[in-house]
Simulated assay, not measured.
Amino acid sequence: MKKLFSSVALMIGVLLTSLAAAQNTSNAGLAFDTPWVRASAPGQKNGAGYVQIQNKGSQTDRLISATTANVGRVELHTIINENGVAKMRQVQGIEVPAGAGATLAPGGFHIMFMGLNAPFKAGEIVPVTLRFEKAGEVNVNFEIKPATHNPAAIEQNTAHKH
């Protein structure tokens, strides 16, 4: 009986180790730099999430959806220019090329949080599950920045100083 118990315990240990290794491998190569959203203005029901996704793997992947609690729905969007007017459009996925990555930033691709149940408050975190075709689900915490946060202005100011 003792021998049977030891064998079962060993098999369970091997199985759990294999599952953990498989999960780490499925997300291998993806890194997420500076995930953030802006704090909500009074009465604002929508928000947008931004992140730099790096794909250090050997296969191109594709972000196909995102989910989080306390919102009506989450969509992937881009901004297109139609006759000089910037318009937001839903996309079915965002390619994340191998050896490169994808940038979700103001004026381009972003994650749209629609129907907020509560406003985004500066200093808090929005836990988001990103779903990729190959890597599967990856949990990423998006930092809520002040409503005035403008990374493009920060980059321009830094560029002018050099």
Score class of each variant (00 low, 15 high):
Lys2Glu: 13
Lys3Asn: 12
Lys3Pro: 00
Leu4Tyr: 10
Leu4Val: 12
Phe5Asn: 09
Ser6Gln: 12
Ser6Glu: 07
Val8Met: 09
Met11Asn: 09
Met11His: 04
Gly13Gln: 07
Gly13Asn: 09
Leu16Arg: 08
Thr17Trp: 07
Ser18Met: 11
Leu19Ser: 12
Ala21Pro: 00
Ala22Val: 07
Ala22Phe: 10
Gln23Ala: 14
Asn24Cys: 05
Asn27Met: 12
Asn27Gly: 15
Asn27Tyr: 01
Gly29Tyr: 01
Gly29Leu: 01
Leu30Gln: 02
Ala31Ile: 02
Pro35Ala: 10
Trp36Gln: 08
Ala39Ile: 05
Ala39Lys: 05
Ser40Asn: 09
Ser40Gln: 06
Pro42Lys: 09
Pro42Thr: 11
Gly43Gln: 06
Lys45Trp: 00
Lys45Val: 07
Gly47Cys: 05
Gly49Ala: 08
Tyr50Gln: 04
Tyr50His: 13
Gln52Ala: 14
Asn55Glu: 04
Lys56Leu: 06
Gly57Thr: 02
Gln59Thr: 14
Gln59Pro: 00
Gln59Ser: 13
Gln59His: 11
Leu63Tyr: 08
Leu63Asp: 01
Leu63Glu: 01
Ser65Leu: 07
Ala69Ser: 15
Val71Gln: 07
Val71Asp: 06
Gly72Val: 08
Arg73Gln: 14
Val74Arg: 12
Glu75Lys: 13
Glu75Gln: 13
His77Thr: 14
Ile79Met: 13
Ile80Val: 15
Ile80Arg: 15
Ile80Phe: 04
Gly84Thr: 08
Val85Asp: 01
Ala86Tyr: 09
Lys87Cys: 01
Arg89Trp: 08
Arg89Gln: 15
Arg89Met: 12
Gln90Arg: 15
Val91Thr: 08
Gly101Asp: 01
Ala102Ile: 02
Thr103Trp: 02
Leu104Glu: 05
Leu104Pro: 02
Ala105Gly: 01
Pro106Gln: 13
Gly108Asp: 09
Gly108Ala: 12
His110Leu: 09
Ile111Asp: 05
Ile111His: 04
Ile111Leu: 10
Met112Ala: 15
Gly115Ser: 04
Gly115Tyr: 03
Gly115Leu: 06
Gly115Phe: 02
Leu116Pro: 02
Asn117Ile: 01
Asn117His: 10
Ala118Lys: 15
Ala118Met: 07
Pro119Val: 03
Phe120His: 05
Phe120Trp: 09
Lys121Asn: 06
Gly123Trp: 05
Gly123Phe: 10
Gly123Asn: 08
Ile125Val: 15
Ile125His: 03
Pro127Val: 06
Thr129Phe: 00
Thr129Gln: 15
Leu130Phe: 04
Arg131Gln: 14
Ala135Glu: 07
Ala135Asp: 08
Ala135Tyr: 03
Val138Thr: 13
Asn139Gly: 11
Val140Asp: 05
Val140Glu: 11
Asn141Cys: 03
Asn141Ala: 15
Asn141Thr: 04
Asn141Val: 03
Phe142Ala: 06
Phe142Glu: 02
Glu143His: 11
Glu143Tyr: 10
Glu143Asp: 09
Lys145Ile: 03
Pro146Gln: 14
Pro146His: 08
Pro151Val: 11
Ala153Thr: 06
Ala153Asp: 10
Glu155Lys: 12
Glu155Gly: 01
Gln156Gly: 00
Gln156Phe: 09
Asn157Arg: 12
Asn157Val: 03
Thr158Val: 09
Thr158Leu: 15
Ala159Arg: 13
Lys161Arg: 15
His162Leu: 13
His162Gly: 15
